[in-house]
């Protein structure tokens, strides 16, 4: 029904105490290197290193981590198949030309291209997961503030963040009550129940918003939030690990050049 929030894992992960900028540099650096790479080797290398870091340093449950890949990979496979069909070049294995302007084919170059994009998605996803699983949003608000993101946006982001957890609770309770009363028995019934669920959560969230205003007014809310955040110091070991990761990954990007699968 609803999916597990990575935030819960991030709050308790093994790399929680590492400086936020180091973790962000790891993830964002890995994303950039994946996009710069012209070969499938570097994204796979990055995915392997980050997966090891996520499983052993951040101590994330391997099953949870694996399940996170299912939905994006489904979208990925569909899109990669489309790319293999439309692109061409090299040896032709299969082709279909229903019209002069439309042709589908599977060739050696298109398979290599599709495989390369697929690897880049895996590399990029693992970099994204690294940030998601090791850095709680509360730490990112501090970084956003230091990066001079407009205050209105940060305030709104914090309000949304807060309300997600309130609404999630409400939603789970209502949903369970509906399931208990066979609210999702038939398709027609489930459309009705789902609409009632969304409607009641919307009204509940509106009332939660009004309660917020009253509660904040009672505490002399002046229209601005204060973010109290301290960043942990940059320590030698994580900094060296980051440097080693970025240097070796860059080397792999350069050395692998434009190696292709076929």
């Amino acid at each position: 029904m609803y999916e597990e929030l990575l935030e819960d894992i991030a709050q308790t992960n093994g790399l929680r105490e590492v400086n936020t900028y180091l973790k962000l540099a790891t993830g964002l650096g890995a994303i950039l290197l994946c996009l710069l790479s012209r070969s499938f080797v570097a994204p796979l290398y990055i995915a392997a290193v980050l997966t090891i870091a996520i499983l052993f340093l951040a101590r994330v449950d391997p099953k949870t981590y694996g399940e996170l890949f299912i939905i994006p990979l489904w979208f990925g496979i569909m899109s990669v198949v489309a790319i293999i069909l439309v692109s061409g070049g090299g040896e032709v294995y299969w082709s279909w030309n229903p019209a002069s302007w439309f042709s589908l084919s599977v060739t050696s170059v298109s398979i290599s291209e599709g495989f390369f994009i697929f690897c880049r998605v895996i590399g990029g996803m693992s970099a994204l997961m690294f940030i998601a699983l090791t850095t709680p949003m509360t730490d990112l608000f501090v970084v956003m503030k230091q990066c001079r993101i407009p205050e209105a946006v940060i305030d709104l982001a914090m309000m949304i963040y807060r309300s997600i957890f309130i609404l999630m609770n409400q939603l789970v309770q209502t949903y369970q009550a509906q399931v208990m009363r066979l609210g999702y028995g038939s398709f027609r019934e489930s459309i009705r129940s789902f609409a009632i669920l969304c409607g009641s959560v919307f009204i509940a969230s509106w009332e939660a918003g009004e309660d917020f205003i009253r509660a904040m007014d009672a505490r002399c809310y002046s229209g601005k939030f204060v973010v109290l955040g301290e960043n942990r110091p940059i320590e030698a070991v994580p900094a060296l690990a980051l440097a080693a990761f970025l240097i070796t990954s860059s080397l792999v990007v350069v050395i692998s050049g434009s190696t292709t699968l076929l």
């Binding site: 509106w206 917020f212 904040m216």
Partner: peptide, 8 residues
């Protein structure tokens, strides 16, 4: 706060 809950 209202925009916040809508975002949520």
């Amino acid at each position: 706060p209202l925009l916040g809950v809508v975002g949520g």
